Amino acid sequence: MTQTILCAIDINRPKEEAHVLEAAKRLADLDDAQLDVITVMPDFGSGVVGVYFKDHQVKAAKDSASEALEKLVSNVLGPDHSKKVRHVVAVGKAYEEVLHAAKVSQADLIVIGAQRPDFKDYLLGPNAARVVRHATCSVYVVRAD
Rank of each mutant, 00 (worst) to 15 (best):
M1D: 00
M1H: 02
Q3T: 00
T4N: 13
L6C: 07
C7K: 05
D10I: 00
D10G: 09
N12W: 02
N12R: 08
N12E: 10
P14N: 06
E16N: 10
E17P: 15
V20G: 10
A23P: 08
K25E: 06
R26P: 06
A28S: 09
D29E: 12
L30F: 04
D31E: 08
D31I: 00
D32A: 04
D32S: 06
L35E: 04
L35Q: 04
L35I: 02
D36L: 05
V37N: 14
I38D: 10
I38H: 11
D43V: 00
D43M: 00
S46D: 10
V49D: 12
V49H: 14
V49M: 11
V51L: 15
V51G: 15
Y52P: 14
K54V: 00
K54G: 10
K54P: 12
H56D: 10
H56V: 03
Q57D: 07
V58T: 01
K59G: 03
K59Q: 14
S66P: 09
S66V: 01
E67H: 05
A68I: 02
L69P: 13
L69C: 09
E70R: 08
L72E: 09
L72Q: 11
V73Q: 02
S74N: 06
N75H: 04
N75E: 09
H81K: 03
K84R: 07
R86V: 09
R86S: 10
H87R: 01
V88H: 12
V89M: 10
A90R: 09
V91S: 12
G92A: 03
K93M: 09
K93R: 08
A94W: 06
A94K: 12
Y95M: 07
Y95L: 07
Y95V: 00
E96Y: 04
E96G: 07
E97Y: 01
V98A: 09
V98W: 13
H100A: 06
A101E: 14
A102V: 05
A102F: 12
K103H: 08
K103A: 06
S105F: 13
D108M: 03
I110A: 13
I110L: 14
V111G: 11
G113A: 03
Q115C: 13
R116Y: 15
F119M: 08
D121H: 15
G125V: 07
P126G: 11
P126E: 05
A129P: 15
A129F: 07
A129G: 14
R130H: 13
R133Q: 14
H134E: 12
V139R: 12
V139M: 11
V141S: 05
V141M: 03
V141R: 05
R143P: 15
R143I: 01
A144V: 10
D145N: 13
